[in-house]
Amino acid sequence: MSKNFIISVWIISPSGGLIYKKDIAGQSTLARGNDPLELGSLFHSQYAISSALSPLPGTSSGIESVETDDFRIQCLRTPTGILFFVLAEPHATNLERTLKELYELFADYVGKNPFYVPNQPIKSALFDKKILESPFI
């Protein structure tokens, strides 16, 4: 179990494709085939719908968090359109900080890698390592 009660972290590209998913808690969730890809894209669409539903168009941030009995989801959408979200235990706190950390790690170890092609799946051992080492994840 992660020290910050994080279960998994997901990154969705601005065009809606799942580009990264990492299980933190050890046991794999949703491991079957393309399920994560489909769910990631669906969540991206839900996010887009939620911000389009706003009575003040164009100003809503969309879904920020989803809470259930067994887990919660916290989201961060960057101004550049990347959607980060984490699945965590219901009692996890300060997930905003976790997401900020994730965004900074992404900017440092994915964005600054000249051989990373934007919007493509992230396959970076260094990024994996930094995520697992981070005190906030």
Partner: peptide, 17 residues
Amino acid sequence: GKRVCDDVLSHAQVSKC
């Protein structure tokens, strides 16, 4: 610019512009 944008924004602590 395309690579540095996220780096700056992750430090600027702005959620939207």
